[in-house]
Nucleic acid binder design. Sequence first.
DNA 1: CAGATAGGTTGCAAAACGCAACTCATCTGA
DNA 2: TCAGATGAGTTGCGTTTTGCAACCTATCTG
Lengths: 153, 153
Amino acid sequence: MDVALAAGSAWTDPACPVARTVDLIGDRWSLLIIRDAMDGATSFTEFHRRLGIARNILTDRLRRLVEHGILDKSADTDGRRHTYRLTAAGQDLFTTVVALRQWGERHAFAPDEPHSVLVDDRGRELPELLPLGQDGAPLSAAASRVRRSRPGE
Amino acid sequence: MDVALAAGSAWTDPACPVARTVDLIGDRWSLLIIRDAMDGATSFTEFHRRLGIARNILTDRLRRLVEHGILDKSADTDGRRHTYRLTAAGQDLFTTVVALRQWGERHAFAPDEPHSVLVDDRGRELPELLPLGQDGAPLSAAASRVRRSRPGE
DNA sequence: CAGATAGGTTGCAAAACGCAACTCATCTGA
DNA sequence: TCAGATGAGTTGCGTTTTGCAACCTATCTG
């Protein structure tokens, strides 16, 4: 991993972890590439087939994700295939993908509209992901606040 | 809320909740607007000041977020101010914002680099958000899979 | 009533995106 | 062995989206 952005660009909000994450994966395609990588996609062609993304854009996104330590690219023994795999940091985005998925299930579908479902290895749906406080009680945005970093902290 | 995209556009992947959520808020600014709304920002000027976003883009993003039922816009008694507030669906994005924040803290900062911290109303940091299985044990991407929706399901 | 403040809109240039066609290397079957 | 087929891109070009700066309009304040 390379805790930095491309040369010539700068963080939108350097002190905020939310903003840095958005700078790294907050575009139309990166999160969907990561979603498909978690679902077993490993090759350029497979990502292209699943996403219907323009090929030059896919090339660029895969390169960026590799640069930022989210995907790892390796040449197959095969000779013509390449294999993209999630790094540990990439796999750690699972929580984020689950959060996006659960919000979408709750708010982006009509009640009767079908959608894909994330299940564990025994086919059971996942419980709802919920931020908790130190005391174990659910925590809302209203009950939390951002403590800004001071220079020299 | 209006479970639909703007007229003329279509979902990137209609059956996937992750993709629908990304279609709604997966751009450079929407999530940061939501972050600041959770941190108390309510006016056009305040969002503009905090984010340094171009004014026409901010106008567009606020309009879209209102259209999609994430923000609510109301005229202040004051007469010149408008107030933007998170709807219930908007507040429900707290989990997603926390997931993005925690990933950023773990992977987008050098060990000694300072960053802002999300704390509860007593100033204590939040525990790590972690997807669990039905049995209560932590679940990884590798131990889960996507069950696709079949037409008519 | 002359600023200041809030919340925009408009025009124009730059960057990002999308499509289709082309390249190039390896593999596969006749 | 050589004519496709496959995988992984690259290139050109037109369309969209962004970003910046200037402008506009309504309300409030001294």
